[in-house]
Write a protein that binds this DNA or RNA. Structure first.
Lengths: 343, 343
DNA sequence: AATAGCACTCGTCACTGGTGAGTGCTAACA
DNA sequence: TGTTAGCACTCACCAGTGACGAGTGCTATT
């Protein structure tokens, strides 16, 4: 898989990729030669380019146009060629202030973050909230709302809440509910929500769970309370996709928007990279979003005090300003992590 | 404002509007004559069309193209010409089954509803959840989460919840919290959330509110608990806009998507029509979405058992299939109302 | 190995004339 | 007086044309 390239080839490849990112137009040999401090003639560059084309790093849309980098080329560019820009002081300030102004509430912060990402990158910003499921259980509480309605509130050690209105068959008085709550709180201490869910299911089928009246009821209700909830996802700046000249045609656009509409797809995509640290980059087909759309994704995960993780990142065209977006994503992830672990 | 039209003019206008809705292309006099059971020649139709153009109901994109209806024409068409289709049995079944399958949870039902609207209409479906603010207060409860964190839970008479984590300056024990809760529950019975909010603010500045320690604290905390929350909104089928030929060009599309991105705008738009009963239709500029975009909106409100109202509807091009979408919106609103009042 | 020169390819652009849909006007008709 | 037939006119659309130029691959030269 590794491709050996001479220093010169690499320099030329880099020049082509960057030129193409800047202009969105096929770049010709003379343009590269000019850009390349005049030390080479266009003819020489042409030879090198022919070479690169053979290696599958460049294509030409037609005979007498310049060359366009392939996804393979972007991969190499991103892995070893790109010179990352520093995050400017202005950008830093913007990231931080946006984080703060969002005020309380995880949702608020994350929504604001996705907007910031979109604004700074000029592409689409995306944030997936830390999954509640991985959080550590702290507290469950039942409140009687009416005859057959109970409100269950689940609090994670991080302070995240999940509440659910539960319809019951029997009527419970507050005393019952408190007892149930105490019992569960005792039992579930220190487990993650996912583990709690498993434990409840196990207990329900166990002997004790079947015959102990109170326990059996408590389990039944709490089972409903801890049911999985869809991950929260924030997408901002969808319209910016339309700024990209390569998406100006309607067919392509439609493909992309349809892909985005199934947020499930995005979640799946981002969850894949939850486990790795640092910035991760998916180029074109690697995103497994709509095949031919030329979409790339730059993400990083962020962590909270309780070690739950969420993902944030930027989606843009394959022809994306990697050199500036990568640092932005990186920095934002760090800032959000910091902010969330202060809480 | 009322425009007098002869029966024939009206018939011809109707024919033009419907033809244009079907084809998205300027419709010429001969096409109308043909469609019109041959009882008139194209020349006559031309005379009438010239007349309609003078009245501002038609425009021609250029000299030798057919005519296109103006927004004014759509208005007349919708108000008095359109023959509403019945909702077919298949559509009814789909609406109902979608409602049911969504399972519990207001959010789930509404999300599913917006999807159904989009699918049946082939345009964009939109639903705004009943505003909590108009609900009647039923119950407030404070739960101590940690030293300086209190969870406030607000329940409306409809069963809707709003909870909020509140940071406090002092440490409260559970007893304090129960007393505070009881006090407030007593006092606020029967008011709407909005009224509760007002009452709290009034009390805070009142003499008693300033000097009674417990009361003052209770007010401070509950003030945070009842703060306004953004209305929930569900939009589905954004990509379908791209099916419309009139939006195939990138500039226009971008305008539209940018408009949609500020969901606040949509909320504002839809809230305007919360007070009127039945289906309401906004054509083109009447939507006060992006000026020139040629967007129309068909909405109806739905009600719940406790008389809170939400809005649902369809957004599509001005050139929309009114005759089928209007009944769909109407029927869906009724069904959702029915479903929600059963709960 | 690098370069200069040159023939060649092919997309883009501006211009062309032909075609046809649709119009407005006028005169004839019921 | 309302309706219609006829006709000249307009104008978008299309296909064809040729000039242009950017870019290429090849070859001979340094």
């Amino acid at each position: 898989m590794e491709i050996e390239l001479s220093t010169r080839s690499r320099q030329i490849l880099e020049a082509i990729v960057e030129d193409y990112i800047a202009t969105a137009e096929p770049v010709g040999s003379s343009a590269v030669a000019r850009r390349h401090a005049m030390t080479l003639s266009s003819a020489t560059v042409r030879n090198v380019m022919a070479n690169l084309e053979e290696l599958g790093l460049l294509t030409s849309p037609h005979t007498s146009a310049g060359r366009i980098p392939t996804e393979k080329a972007y991969r190499i560019y991103v892995d070893s060629l790109v010179a990352l820009r520093r995050v400017s002081r202005i950008e830093k300030r913007q990231i931080i202030s946006h984080c703060r102004q969002a005020g309380i509430g995880l949702s608020g912060i994350l929504k604001e973050t996705s907007r910031t990402l979109s604004q700074l990158s000029n592409y689409m910003g995306i944030v997936i909230a830390p999954s509640f499921n991985a959080d550590v259980f702290r507290h469950i509480e039942f409140i009687r709302i009416s005859q057959r309605k109970i409100l269950a509130i689940l609090v994670s050690s991080k302070g995240a809440l999940q509440n659910r209105l539960i319809d019951t068959e029997d009527d419970y008085n507050s005393e019952d509910l408190v007892r149930m709550g105490n019992y569960l709180n005792d039992k579930m201490q220190g487990l993650t929500i996912t583990q709690v869910r498993e434990l409840i299911l196990r207990e329900m089928t166990s002997e004790k769970g079947q015959y102990d009246q109170l326990l059996s009821r408590a389990l039944k209700i709490s089972e409903q309370a801890v049911r999985v909830e869809g991950d929260e996802i924030f997408v901002e700046g969808q319209a910016r996709i339309l700024d990209q000249p390569e998406f100006s045609d309607a067919g392509r656009m439609k493909e992309i928007y349809q892909a985005f509409e199934q947020k499930g797809l995005l979640v799946q995509l981002l969850s894949r990279c939850m486990n790795a640290d640092g910035v991760q980059i998916y180029i074109g087909a690697e995103t497994s979003l709509s095949q031919s759309a030329g979409i790339s994704l730059i993400t990083s995960r962020f962590v909270t005090s309780s070690n739950t993780v969420g993902m944030l990142g930027v989606i843009g065209p394959t022809r994306m300003g990697y050199s500036s977006v990568i640092p932005i994503v990186d920095y934002t992830a760090r800032m959000v992590s910091k902010l969330l672990s202060e809480v």
